[in-house]
Design a protein around this nucleic acid. Structure first.
Lengths: 164, 164
DNA sequence: CCGCTCGGGTTGACACATCAACCAATCGCG
DNA sequence: CGCGATTGGTTGATGTGTCAACCCGAGCGG
């Protein structure tokens, strides 16, 4: 346990930074997601699945690989995959006499190929370019530290099932 | 329209930073929210509403002031307030022969007073202290820039109703 | 006075996330 | 062999967010 030097409460600067961060998050997320939805009819979740599938060699993965890649809970994954199948973006194929594989469809492939560059451009415009290379590098470092810190904390603390 | 110097796609460093950022977000959010829920039975949304109410002088606000403060859509706000009323955290009072005011209840007040310091401590531990003052200051700046950039972009572009 | 629009707010339908319970094939081990 | 534990996956209930439609009291032009 770290001795908290300044007490548990946040001082004004810290509050301000934290709230700015929260606001940035929400703004970025809703902006990106709104456009994704409006222009291509895809949600952030759809996008994430399709990216993972399309980046794999065969365009097909076992569900739990997707789970590992996305860090989703299995039930969320299952639900979302059935919804995506209904919309024709993916297919569940029972190939090797066991658990099904998830395959991207033609439709899903064209969808992701259309929207990925546009999405990347938006990320560049509103995130990468505003940060600039130096500050972006710093952020990357800190982000990894934070993930590491929480990870360590959880190892000794909370019963997350989303571990490898 | 800015001429994108390096093309729409992200290079490796940018990809890495962006994905680190996304992962940090998810990790932080789920961690904080999970604990808030587990320890106090409050969601992030509950917390946000209660903070705003408890920070106001009278402990009561008009719904659309909450809307302005939280940047939520009005329907989300309405739904969530009715749910919170059912749980006894707030009350809707029709006071001045017009639209109702939202008042925090005793129960809501004790809830927020209990959980706020613990939550703040977690934010300090996993966010503020990992960043450290310098990097935190930088982040605050960038965050505001990004919010500003998206805001400007939206003024001339998208029909967000969540504007003052 | 009538009919307008407009702003604050509610409602309903639907998409989505989470939790707990369940199912079924397999593996370890007696 | 047999049986319990584990693993990969599904299901249903419930809480939450979003969109579009609606409601209703003001203000206002005629």
């Amino acid at each position: 346990m770290v001795l908290v030097s300044k007490g548990p409460w946040l001082d004004d600067d810290e509050q301000k930074a934290w709230r700015s961060y929260l606001l940035m998050n929400r703004t970025l997320e809703t902006h990106l997601e709104r456009h994704l939805q409006r222009d291509f009819g895809l949600s952030k979740s759809d996008f994430e699945i399709l990216v993972n599938l399309s980046e794999s060699e065969s365009g097909r993965m076992r569900a739990f690989e997707l789970g590992r890649a996305t860090q989703w809970e299995k039930s969320r994954l299952s639900h979302h995959l059935t919804r995506m199948e209904k919309r024709g973006l993916i297919r569940k194929e029972a190939c090797d006499s066991r658990y099904p594989e998830i395959a991207i469809t033609e439709e899903g492939l064209t969808a992701i190929k259309e929207c990925a560059p546009v999405h990347a451009a938006r990320v560049r415009e509103f995130f990468v370019d505003v940060f600039g290379p130096d500050r972006l590098a710093v952020l990357g470092e800190v982000a990894d530290e934070i993930v590491g810190t929480i990870g360590k904390h959880c190892d000794t603390d909370c019963p997350l099932e989303a571990r490898s």
